[in-house]
């Protein structure tokens, strides 16, 4: 019954797009590493940010799908997870 109201297809699409993005990005960075490109190390850091941002985006998609499915408790829990990830960054940089 849950699958009928929770749009799983949207979650699959988001993950598929993320998969291609991460694959292409890290393939390029890997090639730059093999060519001894000076700025390759900096690009890896942006790649990690991309991975973490994509995870947060996936959580927001899940939270919204739970909300639309009337499962508010789980929607709130999903947003709590996003907040926890954000709190780690805030704690490191601002506190």
């Amino acid at each position: 019954m849950r699958e009928k109201v929770f749009n799983v297809e949207l979650l699959i699409k988001v993950q598929r797009v993320t998969w291609y993005l991460v694959l292409i990005y890290f393939a390029v960075v890997y090639a730059l590493f093999l060519l001894d490109f000076a700025g390759a190390s900096d690009l890896v850091a942006y790649g990690i940010v991309l991975i973490l941002a994509a995870t947060a985006a996936k959580l927001v998609v899940m939270a919204e799908q739970f909300r639309k499915a009337g499962l508010l408790r789980f929607s709130i829990l999903a947003y709590v997870l996003v907040l926890m990830l954000a709190a780690i960054v805030v704690q490191r940089y601002f506190l």
Partner: peptide, 23 residues
């Protein structure tokens, strides 16, 4: 992702190893 964020912000991720492993 949470643990990775902590490691990343603490500068504990070796950027020369990660691209190959991720790929």
């Amino acid at each position: 992702a949470a643990a990775s964020t902590v490691y990343f912000l603490n500068g504990q991720i070796d950027v020369s190893i990660l691209p190959g492993v991720v790929l």
